[in-house]
């Protein structure tokens, strides 16, 4: 078997990847192919199996079955070769609070075999790049959440990896820090780094990813370019809120305009077969049925709709 695949191979290939924890199947036979130079978004709610899948791809966890090659090497058979070629920014930016930014970068450089002569330059370049030069000699314990993430990213880049894994890189960050991290990810990608990004934020996936896979309960339920996936949902969603005693009547009316869609508690949604043009007709029919509309909005298809359509429920906390 050719485990030393050629360098032209896709940087991440997972085939039927399965992982059990005891009797629990955390990852249930996923298949992914990430192309060179892509930003690939791995989208799903907490506990969907994203992190488990990434831990397998980054050699931290052995697959129960299935295979994966990353940067051309089998993760189970040649973990060291994989490790040399990937950079990983971890979910909670686990960094030793007693060390300074520079010390951590140097330790990372040593662990990745960066020659002594290059170490100093490399560390200061990276600190500059992520805007931490001024804080370089402060203990990490004094850093803000955003600074920790940026340092984490710098650590992941110390050996100029060809494939970068970002596991929930912006969870818990304020909007400003989030934007600046996105900027940096785009810049890295433009320089040729393939990025695999896991996130529970629809907007993040939509903004950054060239292609996404939606994972739910350990299975990939949709995969493709965000715009294609959204187009696949087709019609825009009409969301209305009505008094609770009129819900049934409203549903009957809406059903004549398209398929009902899952919504947050308290509202009704329908995929408008006739597009946004038919909204006035819908309102008229509701009025005729004596339904009082309290709130109305028309949404172009979003990744949340894709997610809802694929799984039957909305992504938690991702409501527009």
């Amino acid at each position: 078997m050719n485990t030393f695949a050629s360098s032209s191979a896709d940087p991440i290939i997972a085939q039927n990847l399965v992982r059990y924890f005891g009797d629990v199947k955390a990852v249930d036979g996923i298949n992914i192919t990430v192309k060179t130079g892509e930003i690939f978004g791995f989208l799903g709610p907490n506990g969907a199996g994203k992190s488990t899948a990434v831990r397998m791809l980054t050699t931290l966890l052995r697959p129960t079955s299935g295979t994966a090659t990353v940067a051309g090497f089998d993760v189970a058979k040649h973990p060291d070769e994989v490790r040399r070629r990937i950079g990983v920014a971890l979910q909670d930016a686990a960094i030793d609070p007693l060390m300074t930014g520079t010390e951590l970068l140097r330790l990372q450089a040593v662990l990745y075999g960066i020659p002594q002569a290059q170490m100093k330059n490399r560390a200061s370049e990276l600190l500059e790049r992520v805007g931490l030069t001024a804080a370089a000699d402060r203990r990490v314990g004094t850093y803000s959440g955003g600074m920790r993430r940026r340092l984490d990213l710098a650590l992941a880049l110390i050996h100029q990896p060809t494939v970068l894994f970002l596991d929930e890189p912006t969870t818990g960050l304020d909007p400003m820090s989030r934007m600046s991290l996105w900027e940096e990810v785009r810049r890295l990608n433009n320089e040729g780094t393939t990025v695999m990004l896991t996130t529970q934020y629809l907007e993040e996936a939509d903004q950054l990813a060239d292609r996404i896979a939606i994972i739910d309960a350990g299975k990939i339920v949709r995969e493709g370019k965000p715009q294609d996936l959204k187009a696949g949902v087709g019609f825009p969603t009409l969301l209305i809120t009505v008094p609770s005693d009129q819900t049934e009547r409203a549903k009957a009316v809406l059903a004549t305009f398209g398929d009902m869609r899952p919504t947050a508690e308290g509202s009704l949604g329908v995929g408008l077969r006739g597009g946004a043009n038919v909204v006035t007709d819908v309102v008229r029919k509701l009025d005729e049925a004596s339904v009082r509309v309290q709130h109305l909005e028309v949404n172009e298809p979003s990744l949340d709709d894709v997610f809802a359509e694929a799984t039957g429920h909305r992504l938690e906390g991702a409501k527009a």
Binding site: V110, T162, E191
Partner: peptide, 21 residues
């Protein structure tokens, strides 16, 4: 700085250097 694909040019880290780090 660029992140050109140069992983292969990075030497495999040695045991003693890593341990010392």
């Amino acid at each position: 700085m660029s992140t050109q694909q140069n992983a292969a040019s990075v030497a495999m880290p040695t045991t003693m250097r890593s341990a010392r780090g």
